[in-house]
Nucleic acid binder design. Sequence first.
DNA 1: CAATTCACATACGTACCGTATGCGGAAATG
DNA 2: CATTTCCGCATACGGTACGTATGTGAATTG
Lengths: 179, 179
Amino acid sequence: MRTARAAFAEKGFAAASMDELTAAAGLTRGALYHNFGDKKGLLHAVIEQIDAEMAVRLAAVGARATDPWRGLLDEYRAYIEMALEPEIQRILLLDGPAFLGDPSLWPSQNACLAETTRRIRDLVADGAIPPVDAEAAARLLNGASLHAALWVAASGEPEATLAKALDAFGRLAEGLARP
Amino acid sequence: MRTARAAFAEKGFAAASMDELTAAAGLTRGALYHNFGDKKGLLHAVIEQIDAEMAVRLAAVGARATDPWRGLLDEYRAYIEMALEPEIQRILLLDGPAFLGDPSLWPSQNACLAETTRRIRDLVADGAIPPVDAEAAARLLNGASLHAALWVAASGEPEATLAKALDAFGRLAEGLARP
DNA sequence: CAATTCACATACGTACCGTATGCGGAAATG
DNA sequence: CATTTCCGCATACGGTACGTATGTGAATTG
């Protein structure tokens, strides 16, 4: 799986050869089909691993904040920055939905999305922000964050672009906080 | 290209066979490689066509509105609804970025994104909304819209989910309108 | 009317996925 | 302790699909 993560991140899922991949890991395709069923099975296992790691990192960021609303913004800032990592962007955010379909249909529900959904639900329950469907808000904010990261990653001036993206994201998020 | 659009929308770019595709069009792969260079070239041509059509539709929606700010919201509502069409969702929004990379790097710049960027820029210039980087705002709103559409499309109850998504989207967009 | 170009077809090599089968060692069984 | 089962993985094979190199007939040009 380490080898797969590296190969998928560098070449993309479609261009990654299972022969090369398994050979690099000191195995053959036989081992792969025995353990993961097929190529998509390996992708799914890798995504599940990455997703779980992201959820842990996000929860840690959110837990550090004293103000819950500020905690949510910190989480999304962290999400955007994580989405800049090639491994996460390529595997989880681009190839995942393209080859496995919408994350909500994955056998292992998106842990990372669940984390932000839960946080928004808590904010609404505590009256910190006006009522809103937590999953809808989380999905839209995740989508906005992802595209911000794609934009920054493709940009020639990552720092300046990231600043613009974070500013615009803050403005959007404010829309949730006001009645 | 008509055949390609149908095949890409139904089976996805990766699973679409060029043999079947060209045969269905009454041609062979020779014609394809002569006109489009390679498989990705065909995808690019198809995406360019769809993107242009979307930009026209979006501009028409925006032009109908009297209030510019309302016009922008109408455009995004239309964008979300267009993103529900399987052809657009699958080809332009899922396979496009996965196989061709970020839209901003496509030779034919994303006309649809350019349309919403221009509209936001006008709103800022007219003082209708506080200053914000127009491209950043357009990208984030596009991302939010796309994920809203993916969510609705994967949902078991499309109408109810769409209502939630549109509500949450309106809340986010309001964040741009307030100081 | 000869020559060139153009659009497309045909044929071939290569790469890769998925499956069916084989094998060696570990574990279980008595 | 001997034997059998089982498990993890390797090997071999078939089928499919992409990209390229080459051929061909019609249209165009001078």
